[in-house]
Nucleic acid binder design. Structure first.
Lengths: 303, 303
DNA sequence: ACAAATATTCCACATTATGGACCGAGCAAA
DNA sequence: TTTGCTCGGTCCATAATGTGGAATATTTGT
């Protein structure tokens, strides 16, 4: 009864075609789905941009299809093609769309105070991350004041979902179905990485859920310890994650627990602020008045 | 020879179907085009969100089509539906995509210094705007120190392209074809507004181009005067606009000229910074290494 | 200069998206 | 309560749209 949305026929159609399988819950939207996927893939290459081939390789779509879609997305301004390298990257159109929402999604400024409080209380380095496609994307970093630093991650870094204590909460607090899908998807690019096999990731998801926060001790960095918790929205879906790192000597079990509690407390505050912003969203933002005409809205100009 | 992009067959196909006409330069991408249009429409309603009917009215598309697309966009996270009002608004997915580009599109911080310089030198209020769909969207405002203020515009306000001195440069410095298309598009919602008929807008576009900056004196606010110039990218396309407003008594013709020169100078600086950001974009951003595999990129994890 | 890799385009075909008609919930007036 | 209206959501026969294999063009590397 959570979602009011009246979806009558929630058909899950398995289309097997040319060996490619896709499951769609909305019919008649294949190309939108694909376009969105392509956008995510392009985004995952950050500012460097992705070549056509890379997008094809990362999307399990036909080259011609990808190309056609990228061209269309370019013309719509959602993607832009580097004149020199011909790489495709996210375009200003996305920025413009995002800007229309004002700062309502700017979790960075929303979380700012909370993160600083954590940093000040712990003297350790604190990170904020969001999900971006199949990656966790580090949005902000508040460097700790404690002399021995553990800077392994910088702003704009993106790690596969579930890899790292900042990325894991974004994965682990998703419903099982999505967790599986994501792990399966990432398995391809994590192939050969013995530290992040599908089985290991799945196990760590379980561990994270059980202890209610993510820890990264083992793995590639034996000298540091990171603790991460998600920021959940009203539907208990992770919208972001907050993560703290310190050298391992500063992280005895009891301090871990204390840190996790602190992170959760601040996470709750962030999600409250988020939800508040969501609930006032319905009110009119600006000066404009809408008068739906025959074919388009009429905007009252003047005043 | 401006665009390197090798478009061989630039077919303009006029599809007349059920009385709806569309011109497409990329074939086989109707639904992407439509989806993008819907995104823009939804964005134009800001945080309030748009009802299904409003989107239909503003998009000249069929209700069923719009609904299906909105649902798909929702599932992809590019749009979200308010649980209460059922209005559709831009979703976090857009934020995530935008975040992947780091601050490369954040013209707001790029322009910050320039705008402050202008404000400090003139004591008047300065605005920064971008194009968002068929509107100019005010992104930032630096309030002047001169006692008599002329605050008519706030951050997040959106005015139809060409209406207002901050919005006009975004329109006027576009190629003719696009200017016409935009004016035509906006004509519907500006219907009945005698101050902004298509003919008047077109004339003002010409005037703006001739004098090389936009002025807004007449119109609805006889007490104030606004001057606006675009920020152009490497292809001379407007990416933003900078606008200054003051009470009309502070704006004799010679000062207008001086202001315009100042605005242009700062605009140039902004666009240099913009282009700089663009040119280093090709370099690798972060730790990740791409190894295109059979089906997906392989990301080197660790280090 | 040649080959290999990569990007772009073409086009016959059928899968996918279309849109007119329909349904039903919510609401206001009768 | 009933009637009538609006508006969000759904259905499904139909053909237009998007597909993708293959051909071609371009760039890159040696």
């Amino acid at each position: 009864m959570r979602y009011k949305c009246a979806v009558k026929s929630f058909k899950v159609v398995h289309i097997v075609r040319h060996g490619v399988r896709a499951n769609a819950s909305v019919n008649g939207a294949q190309s939108i789905r694909r376009a969105a996927q392509i956008l995510r893939v392009v985004a995952s290459f950050s500012g460097r941009g992705a070549t056509l081939g890379e997008v094809v390789a990362s999307s399990a779509l036909q080259k011609a299809t990808v190309h056609r879609m990228l061209r269309a997305l370019c013309e719509e301004g959602l993607v832009e093609q580097d004149e020199l390298t011909r790489n495709y990257r996210i375009g200003v159109g996305i920025f413009a769309l995002n800007a229309s929402m004002g700062d309502r999604f700017d979790i960075r400024s929303l979380a700012q105070d909370a993160l600083q409080r954590i940093r000040d209380q712990t003297e350790d380095t604190v990170y904020l991350a969001i999900r971006s496609g199949y990656d966790g994307l580090c949005l902000a970093l508040y460097e700790g004041t404690y002399p021995e630093k553990t800077l392994k991650l910088s702003v704009h870094d993106r790690w596969p979902l579930g890899v790292g204590a900042f990325s894991m909460p974004l994965l682990a607090f998703l419903p099982d179905g999505e967790v599986n899908e994501i792990i399966e998807h990432n398995a391809v690019r994590l192939a050969g990485d013995e530290l992040h096999t599908a089985a290991l990731l799945l196990k760590r998801v379980g561990d994270t859920r059980a202890r209610n926060y993510a820890v990264n001790t083992i793995e590639a960095y034996p000298t540091m310890c990171a603790i991460g918790v998600p920021v959940l929205d009203a539907q208990q879906r992770p919208i972001a994650s907050v993560c703290l790192t310190a050298i391992i000597s500063r992280m005895p079990p009891e301090r871990r627990e204390r840190i996790a509690t602190l992170l959760w407390a601040e996470s709750k505050k962030i999600s409250e602020a988020w939800q508040q912003l969501r609930s006032v969203v319905a009110q009119v933002d600006s000066w404009r008045t809408i008068q739906p005409g025959r074919k388009a809205q009429a905007t009252q100009v003047g005043v």
